[in-house]
Amino acid sequence: MSPAPPAYTSVPVWTREPVVEEPDTAGLVHTVLQVGPDPAAAAVVADWCAVLAAAPPVRVLPHVCADAEEALRALAADLQDARVGHRVLVAGSARDCLAVRAAALRAGLTEEELTVGVTSVAVRDVWCVHCAATASAEVDLEGVVACPGCSRSLLVYPHVSRRSGAHLGFQVDAEQLPEPSGAAR
C-alpha cells in the first residue's frame, strides 16, 4: 500500500485499500458479521471461522447480513447481554465496516476487540458540515460529491468520524465570489 500521508490520522488504513485483519483468538465469544453478498467477504468469514475453530474453546456467532442495517441489528442483539471476552469481526466494504465500528464502539467495545476484513473501498459516506445530510457515493478521498440535502459540491476531506463512520464534507468552492449582485462598485 502507498504510505498514508502523516496527516490522515482519523482515516483507517483499511478505508484506503482492502485489508483483512487476523482474528483475536484470545476472545471467548466472537460475533462474525458478513455484510453484503460479496463472495470475497464470504471467503474472509470462512477463513476467520477456520482460525477460530482451531483456537481454544470459543463460541462463534455467525451472521450473514444483506446490508449494514441488518448487520447493526444482529450486532445489537449479540451485544445486548455480552460479557467481557466478546469480540466482533466484520467483513464487507469499508463503508459497512466503518458503520459497524461506530455502532460497536458506542456499545462499549474497544478498538482492540474489533477485527475488520475489508473487501472494497470504493464507496464512502460523506457528512455535509453545512446541512448535516449524508451522501453515500463512489468517491475518492479529496474527491467531490454532491450533497443530497443542500446540493452543494462537497470536498471529501480525509477526516473520518469514529462516531458515525462518515467523512467530513464541506463546500469545495466556498471561496469563489458570488455573481455580482449589481451593488455599487
Binding site: 471467548l28 471476552g85 482492540e112
Partner: peptide
C-alpha cells in the same frame, strides 16, 4: 483475566 478473554486495554 487474559484466560477469560480480557484485552489489555481493560
Amino acid at each position: 483475566a487474559a484466560d477469560a478473554g480480557w484485552p489489555a486495554g481493560r
